[in-house]
Design a protein around this nucleic acid. Structure first.
Length: 587
RNA sequence: GCGCCCGUAGCUCAGCUGGAUAGAGCAGCGGAUUUCUAAUCCGCCGGUCGGGGGUUCGAGUCCCUCCGGGCGCACCA
């Protein structure tokens, strides 16, 4: 519907004599929904924005634009108001015809073409496979999945990816932790490192390992501990200690170490994958960090380093290889290969992002936690130095989650939300409430997640408010059928002109806003707009429900009203679907 | 110290990238059901948009500055 007005304005602007608007390309029509019904349905401030360049009085310019607008049967009137707004008042027929479009398009209603088939890779969650996902990851999962859905709905080709950090020290620590638990199961007695993964989830991994390999990986505790430095508890350094344990494990296990390592990785990854699948969050690919070093040409890491070198942005210093990031706006130069020959995590990062570009993705959306913002300038610098457009990388940063139980903050340790798992949260409040509440707030706003509210089946729980609207509609349609007055779609479409009550008009206006929400939500990567919209749509329906009966004797009115609520239901389904929230038939 | 994010009603937050009289929900107060789910609806109360300067026809929105809160500033992942 907004589209209609935009086109009218754009056409009018194009028709004006050259020079009327000053020079330069045709401006965006800038059509918006009005906040106040007194200002009509849609308005544009384009005349005011152009007034200076056109060296004209805004109202006079507006008058010229209005004069150039082609008459349209769906536009009741246009007016110039205030400092130079152009207001458009639509006829009821405009909204009524849109309802027919909703029913016709069904689940496709709201989809846009702004993405124009451009391709994007949305990388999200990407939590280290060293333990179960926690409540913070849940927000990333819900946010990323919804942004991806919005982009897809707005015409982008979307690839969803999870970057699996399956290499590096943290994974070695997991392997060591699994092995130590395994040794305990074998009957060995030895202390557990302060810096090891102490969570109970490690024990089943060890048990699986023992079930499969028996005592084959067992080594005497005395051999394991011989000559190790002191752990933190004994006044030593916990990092030095765990590194020594890892080295000892490699030494004693030989070929057995990768077995332990892979067992830890496989079990943790399976847990994460299962968790996310149950949460309705799926990926097209789980991209292995290990694979960055694979390939006949040395893999993405070597390709990235070669590119940097070829472009002259690399230098050697103190035995390490550095990338001259400062040349590309970063605050300091960055090491890519350490003095000990190991590639840095940063090298993997830029290699991974180069690989994304090489796979043909135009927009690289990488969703990170708010604590990673130092990372953006670095990776952009890397892209630029490799000859890729740095602005192709966009990094929405998701703020922390704080759990509340009623008025009390749930203690979660130093790192927010770290010790409450996503599984626990889902079990407690359900997937629907979790997904809805996770994206209710703008991602750059810290989120207070109230467990009590999320579980409450009452009117102050926004999830139920919206789902209830859907269930009510389903119930009305069912009752109509039961009374022998089933919704006659053809009759409903033919009688849409019956819909003229204020509550009906208000609902039609809200229903027809959905395509605008999809577009705006996609463009701004802002799932919370969908939540706000759903609330307003549900509100418009509930108001309509209270204002008039749907199952009335007059068949024309009845079918028209049923068509209206069927359209509302369709949009509720579509919007909830974008969020990954169910639309229950009854509650 | 430097950088990024945030500060809007008692509470939790929107505010469409500069537009018209700053909006919702919750809380509080007052109403509504012989009718399709009251998990609902209608009304009222509530604001120096953290403070101060600036830019312009117009600023919650952009710039500067200060105050307060969060998070970063590795040859860690």
């Amino acid at each position: 519907m907004k589209n209609l007005v935009e086109n009218l304005v754009a056409d009018a602007l194009a028709v004006l004599p050259a020079g009327t608007l000053g020079d330069g390309a045709l401006p965006d029509p800038g059509v918006e929904r009005t906040r106040d019904a007194q200002h009509g349905d849609f308005a544009t401030g384009v005349a005011m924005r152009l007034a200076k360049a056109a060296r004209a009085n805004p109202r006079a310019l507006a008058a010229r634009i209005v004069a150039a607008v082609q008459p349209n049967p769906l536009v009741a009137k246009t007016e110039i108001a205030g400092p130079g707004f152009i207001n458009f008042f639509l006829t009821p027929a405009a909204w009524q015809s849109e309802m027919a479009r909703v029913l016709d398009a069904g689940e496709r209603y709201g989809r846009g073409t702004a993405g124009a088939g451009r391709s994007t890779i949305v990388e999200f969650v990407s939590a280290n496979p060293t333990g179960p996902l926690h409540v913070g990851h849940g927000r990333h999962a819900a946010f990323g999945a919804t942004v991806a859905n919005l982009l897809a709905a707005d015409g982008w080709r979307v690839h969803r990816e999870y970057y699996v950090n399956d290499a590096g020290r943290q994974m070695d620590i997991l392997a060591a932790s699994v092995w130590l638990r395994y040794l305990e199961l074998c009957g060995e007695t030895l202390p557990f490192p302060a810096n090891g993964y102490r969570g109970d989830y490690v024990r089943p991994v060890a048990a699986n390992l023992r079930a499969r390999y028996g005592d084959a990986l067992r080594r005497p505790a005395a051999e394991v501990l011989a000559g190790l430095p002191a752990d933190e508890a004994a006044g030593g350094d916990k990092d030095q200690f765990i590194d020594a344990v890892i080295a000892r494990a490699r030494q004693l296990l030989g070929d057995g170490f990768p077995i332990v390592f892979d067992a830890g990785l496989a079990d943790m990854l399976a847990d994460i994958q299962g968790d996310l699948a149950e949460f309705g969050v799926t990926f097209d690919r789980w991209y292995s960090e290990q694979a960055l070093g694979d390939g006949r040409d040395g893999g993405p890491i070597d390709r990235a380093l070669r590119r940097l070198r070829a472009n002259g942005h690399v230098f050697e210093q103190e035995g390490a290889t550095w990338f001259r990031a400062t040349l590309f706006g970063d605050e300091k130069d960055r090491v890519v290969v350490r003095a000990n020959g190991q590639k840095t995590y940063f090298a993997s990062d830029i290699a991974y992002h180069l690989d994304k570009r090489e796979r043909g993705f135009e927009l690289l959306l990488t969703i990170l936690g708010a604590d990673h913002h130092g990372y953006v300038a670095r990776v952009r610098a890397g892209l630029a130095a490799m000859g890729e457009p740095p602005e192709s990388l966009e990094v929405p940063m998701v703020q922390f989650v704080t759990l509340w139980k009623g008025g009390e903050k749930v203690a979660m340790g130093k790192r927010e939300a770290q010790f409450v798992t996503l599984r626990d949260l889902r079990a407690e409040v359900g997937n629907d409430a979790a997904r809805f509440i996770y994206v209710m707030r703008s991602h750059d706003q810290a989120l207070d997640f109230d467990l009590e509210l999320a579980r409450k089946q009452s009117n102050d729980n926004p999830v139920y408010y919206v789902q209830y609207a859907h269930a009510r509609i389903a119930s009305v349609l069912k009752q109509a059928a039961e009374r022998g007055l089933p919704f006659d779609r053809a009759a409903g479409l033919a009688g849409l002109a019956m819909l003229a009550e204020p509550a009906e008009i208000a609902l039609m206006r809200e229903v027809s806003r959905w395509p605008e929400v999809v577009h705006q939500g996609a463009e701004q990567r802002a799932p919370h707009l969908v939540v706000h919209y759903l609330r307003e749509l549900a509100q418009a329906f509930h108001a309509c429900y209270a204002a008039l009966p749907f199952i009335v004797d007059d068949a024309h009115t009845r079918n028209a009203r049923l068509a209206l609520i069927a359209a509302a239901r369709q949009v509720l389904v579509n919007a909830l679907g974008i969020l990954g929230v169910s639309a229950p038939e009854s509650m």
